[in-house]
Design a protein around this nucleic acid. Structure first.
Lengths: 141, 141
DNA sequence: TGTTACTGTAATAATATCAATTACAGTTGA
DNA sequence: TCAACTGTAATTGATATTATTACAGTAACA
């Protein structure tokens, strides 16, 4: 898994936790433990998909535009990490003169496609709101 | 996903396809498209877990010791790639003075643990035998 | 018994990927 | 106009991945 997925999820949970649902890239970066420029890149992507709104200029930052319970990790996965399950390295070669070697790429690919669907269906059950709730529960244990 | 998983699966399917279930690291490497030393490393691991037997010396190589239909991708996943779903990079910091930032690692971790279970349950439905069967079907299409 | 063909394993080198950093143009509020 | 932001790209540095090399150990076989 892509670490941008982690940054995206963490950022959204943090925004959901803020009373006004707002924070700057610098505040988010400090919380996530990364560089503000990286946060801007990730949240810029979430903006294009309508999960957050941004305001440039002084006093600006990022703001959650959806209900935390309506944003699932599957949404975030599709936005940031779709296709990242299959390794970039690939075995076999379609040009090869062997039944196994020449077909492995296709078959392996279909295996990973199915795996992604499984993952997405799992992620679709987890929302930004439910993650925040889990975090809040920990406080009392 | 780890590419050693791919190498392991491909190697096992190739062995299952061989009439005697045997091949040398050089033959396997040529089919997988990697270096023989890498194949030996991966299959050495599968040997320790009892999926293949090796014979050193002249005429030696690797041999499948189980029925192809009894070896699932979940077995291979556990052997080669357990825990590889979560990115090595990690957000937040338990020492942090923020409810979200300090608990995110734990919560994210539990998300990925659940995801791995999902993946494993999907992989447990696919066997080396079923992959070989899929490859053979393609011949007729 | 010596040669050949293998595996096992570690070390090294080459390459690719990932994350941090820097830089700066554009935007907005005061 | 200044200060505080975002958007984005380029660069550097760190890390991970893959290929390659090397060689000791083992077994078959002439």
């Amino acid at each position: 898994m892509n670490s941008e997925f982690v940054i995206a999820v963490h950022s959204l949970v943090l925004l959901a936790h803020r009373p006004e649902g707002m924070a700057s890239s610098e505040e988010i970066a400090a919380n996530v433990c990364t560089h503000p420029a990286r946060v801007r890149k990730v949240l810029g992507c979430l903006r294009k998909l309508g999960f957050v709104a941004t305001r440039e200029g002084s006093g600006g930052g990022y703001k959650l535009t959806q209900e935390p319970d309506n944003v699932t990790l599957a949404d975030v996965y599709r936005a940031m990490a779709a296709g990242s399950l299959a390794p970039s390295w690939c075995s076999g070669n379609p040009e090869m003169d062997c039944l196994v070697g020449s077909n492995m790429q296709d078959v392996m690919n279909s295996v990973f496609c199915g795996a992604e669907k499984q993952l997405e269906s799992y992620f679709s059950q987890i929302t930004i709101g439910s993650m925040l709730a889990q975090i809040k529960e920990r406080q009392h244990v």
